[in-house]
């Protein structure tokens, strides 16, 4: 008789060391908060949406100076409106995709399907973060470019720079932007990596069985 068969014999018996819970013990459990990874993922996603929406839109509303600069950069009211609508549209699309994929997570699916749906939700938010980092990267680049060419104060400061100094400055600025974006990206990788480490491991294990 192998080990599992020994266990099978006593499997359906109540464990004598296990306290049987009464209805009185169960009722309060129903009202406790879940700490499942699907819920945590959802909260992180919402936090990221809110964060990037604030980052993208607050400057437009709060700073006149920023608005003026943007007007100068785009040099066209029309282009600015198009960019704003596009930006809003993309954010709404991501919100829709996020809710749709979150809704698809069902605890009664097969284990593999459940894992796939959670991974899909994580993918939606990953693309949203990636999109924002790209926009952020471009904004930094154009911001620096604008400052170096159009901002009277900066132009005055760098008037005496020779070609080597200008190259070094561009390299520093480029390096700084890349580093900032990289740090953001690593931060996200870390958050999701930690959260979904076990899920990813189990998903790979399931895939391995069917290979």
């Amino acid at each position: 008789m192998d080990g599992l068969d020994i266990l099978k014999k006593s499997w359906n018996k109540d464990d004598p060391n296990q306290r049987k819970l009464s209805a009185k013990d169960i009722y309060p459990m129903l009202h406790k908060k879940s700490s499942s990874i699907a819920k945590t993922l959802f909260y992180i996603s919402i936090a990221e949406l809110v964060f990037w929406i604030i980052v993208s839109f607050i400057p437009y509303i709060c700073s006149d100076n920023y608005k003026e600069r943007l007007d100068k950069i785009y040099d066209s009211e029309h282009l600015f409106t198009v960019m704003t609508i596009l930006s809003f549209g993309i954010t709404i699309l991501f919100i829709y995709l996020l809710f749709r994929s979150y809704k698809a997570i069902s605890v009664t699916d097969s284990a593999k399907k459940l894992m796939e749906n959670i991974i899909n939700t994580r993918k939606v938010i990953k693309y949203y973060v990636l999109y924002n980092l790209i926009v952020f990267g471009f904004s930094l680049f154009f911001g620096f470019y604008y400052a170096l060419h159009n901002d009277p104060e900066t132009v005055k400061n760098i008037a005496n720079f020779g070609p080597t100094e200008m190259t070094i400055m561009y390299l520093i600025l480029f390096g700084f932007s890349a580093l900032l974006i990289l740090l953001f990206w690593l931060f996200y990788k870390l958050i999701y990596g930690l959260l979904l480490k076990r899920l990813n491991r189990n998903y790979k294990e399931l895939e391995k069985i069917d290979d």
């Binding site: 700490s35 990874i37 699907a38 605890v107 009664t108 699916d109 284990a111 459940l114």
Partner: peptide, 14 residues
């Protein structure tokens, strides 16, 4: 099914 899915996928030590 729900129990196993929770243990394998959703459960996060809290």
């Amino acid at each position: 099914r729900v129990g196993l899915n929770t243990a394998i996928t959703l459960y996060r030590k809290s």
